[in-house]
């Protein structure tokens, strides 16, 4: 058995998939691992992430399976689940050997590995969907809009296209506090990711003069729009899980 040992990144996992094909491995006897857990009687291969190999794999997957399924694979790899690399690898192997056409990579859900990757992508997709809804920007003194998130999965890169499209002329930034990743969108330009601490960004998080007023207006609006006779906190919680609320304006009180 061959085990490709990867780090937790798209680059690394896609490089491993490239290698598995290039080195003509028996796919049933090969796996990709993101952990250091030893596997008995296995030959460990440490993968050096390689941008060119990654690009080749990504382009092929995109071409063969279509945009939607390709995105699902990428989303699965953003999951916090460490079995994701293996699930994605096997799904790709399954799709290529069954000659799945674009949009049909995840048809075969009775296959466990395919289902696993599908479920991971769905979970990540759900969190992306939630954050699109629940992210709250605050306006800082210099006009920059800043949002903080604490997602389970590494979704920041999936959020940026959405917000860049809708706020093209704003300077805005999303910070994944746990992972220390900052996604930055300068007005009118392409967004990029920045890894590191807040110090390096030299940011002051002081709010603009108007910010407080709009926060208050929105809180008041949320309060007024509810119908007392229909009060149903359980339903509210089902739709808006508690874990998001610590970064949401309407659930915070005056600072």
């Amino acid at each position: 058995m061959t085990v490709y040992r990867c780090e937790d990144s798209l680059e690394s996992v896609f490089t491993a998939i490239y290698l598995a094909y290039e080195e003509k491995r028996d796919h049933m006897d090969t796996c990709i691992s993101l952990t250091k857990d030893p596997i008995l009687f296995a030959e460990d291969v440490y993968v050096m992430p390689d941008q060119e190999k990654m690009n080749k794999v990504m382009r092929s997957l995109y071409r063969i399976f279509g945009e939607k399924d390709y995105m699902s694979l990428c989303m699965a790899l953003a999951s916090q689940d460490m079995g994701k690399a293996q699930a994605v690898y096997r799904t790709v192997v399954n799709g290529l050997s069954a000659r799945c056409e674009a949009g049909h990579l995840f048809d075969n859900l009775s296959n466990d590995e395919v289902h696993r990757a599908f479920a991971l992508a769905r979970g990540v997709g759900r969190e992306i969907g939630h954050l699109r809804e629940f992210i709250r920007f605050e306006e800082l003194k210099n006009g920059l809009l800043c949002a903080k998130i604490n997602p389970k999965n590494n979704v920041i890169g999936f959020l940026m296209p959405h917000f860049s499209d809708r706020l093209p002329q704003e300077n805005f930034m999303i910070c994944d506090e746990q992972r220390g990743i900052f996604a930055i969108h300068p007005a009118g330009q392409q967004w990029y990711l920045f890894y590191g601490g807040e110090q390096e960004l030299e940011l002051s998080f002081a709010l603009s003069a108007e910010e407080q007023e709009y926060q208050e207006l929105f809180r008041y609006f949320c309060h007024k729009i509810a119908i007392e006779e229909r009060k149903n906190l359980k339903l509210q919680q089902g739709m808006l899980p508690l874990r998001y609320r610590k970064n949401m304006t309407e659930f915070l009180h005056n600072k």
């Binding site: 699109r132 809804e133 629940f134 499209d165 809708r166 706020l167 093209p168 002329q169 704003e170 949320c222 729009i225 509810a226 119908i227 007392e228 229909r230 009060k231 149903n232 906190l233 359980k234 339903l235 509210q236 089902g238 739709m239 808006l240 949401m248 309407e250």
Partner: peptide
């Protein structure tokens, strides 16, 4: 889709942004 200049775009499925205490 956004037009690169103005503020805003629309998503066909619709997006909820919050839920009030009646769950709506």
């Amino acid at each position: 889709k956004g037009n690169g200049v103005d503020m805003g775009n629309c998503v066909a499925a619709g997006i909820c942004h919050s839920f009030s205490s009646d769950g709506r």
